[in-house]
Design a protein around this nucleic acid. Structure first.
Ligand code: FES
Ligand code: FES
Lengths: 162, 162
DNA sequence: ATATTAAGGATAATTTATATCCGTATGAAT
DNA sequence: ATTCATACGGATATAAATTATCCTTAATAT
């Protein structure tokens, strides 16, 4: 099992959009260049963010993306689920139903105990991601990145914004 | 992202092996029949359990699998990692390195903040699975299944054990 | 000897992930 | 008005992972 690369892309793009000057937009082209990613494919991840209402978009020469809400109102889980879907990572195919010792027509009262354990772990994973806001993430990144790089990155974004 | 079906198979097989009479083995064929699974493919999952030293095996007409340890010494995580691997579910491709504002030869001090958040969630998932022992799981299943079905299932296992 | 089993290698089919291409509608600048 | 750059979505292509089967080998019980 492995998460799609879109998750890494979407999270980094949101972190960049967080540094965008008020009211401006940043294009797919700029985001792809910045991260060294294939523009057309990155576009699919950004479309997913748009469909999840995490970002606003506009068309035309100065068009692109910007965050639709304050960074403190967006969680990492919001972003992950936007590109990866909300479906559980464990899928029960109900193999217990094949038990030859069951009476004919036997009907289970609820989900299998195995599935419940796996789903609880899935929820722990989601809960962990839900507890980190985009604002927290950006603050951590800002802490990690040397000040001069951080500053010139902000300038780069402002320069490419439309 | 979705876990492989082997996870569901391996967990259910371990739960069945937990009901095996002392010293006996249960074959792939019996486990496949019981769960309605393709024998040859299920065999791959069981081999993974064997390689992780969670089960003992023996050859020959009375051969098959049995648990290698007490059920309280095996966690759900042990089983999941045996078939799914221990690799993290989030893979960082270090896209931050493409940032055009970095000075040439810039070297990161540690893993990216985005990766750290994703890895923490991964660990929360694993921790949740690690906190459930096979003995706990079996107890829950026993609670779920009607007593008569539980009993006849135990008899079925004993009958097929060699 | 014979039958049955786990183990593992080879191979194929199916599904998912990755990636590119192109047409359309929209908005900004001239 | 015209032109250009953009998001969006559909279609298609390629690569990789998952699912599945087949077959050979070595071990073991009867
Ligand atoms: S039947 Fe699907 S997890 Fe038990
Ligand atoms: S560079 Fe990989 S998660 Fe940030």
């Amino acid at each position: 099992m492995i998460l799609r690369s879109h998750v890494e892309w979407a999270l980094h793009c949101c972190a960049i959009l967080a540094g965008l000057p008020e009211g401006k937009y940043l294009s797919t082209k700029a985001l792809a260049e910045f991260h060294g990613l294939p523009k057309e494919y990155l576009s699919k991840a950004l479309q997913a963010l748009s469909q999840a209402d995490l970002v606003d978009t506009t068309l035309g020469p100065t068009g692109g993306y910007r965050l639709a809400k304050p960074t403190s109102d967006i969680t990492v889980l919001d972003i992950v689920e936007a590109v990866e879907g909300k479906a559980r990572t464990f899928e029960c195919t109900n193999i217990r139903a094949a038990n030859p010792c069951r009476p004919a027509g036997f009907c289970d009262a609820g989900p299998c105990a195995v599935a419940r354990v796996m789903w609880a772990a899935d929820e722990a994973w989601r809960s962990s991601l839900r507890n980190v806001r985009l604002s927290d993430l950006v603050a951590t990144v800002a802490d990690d990145v040397p000040q001069d790089v951080w500053k010139s990155t902000g300038a780069w974004i402002a320069r490419r914004a439309g």
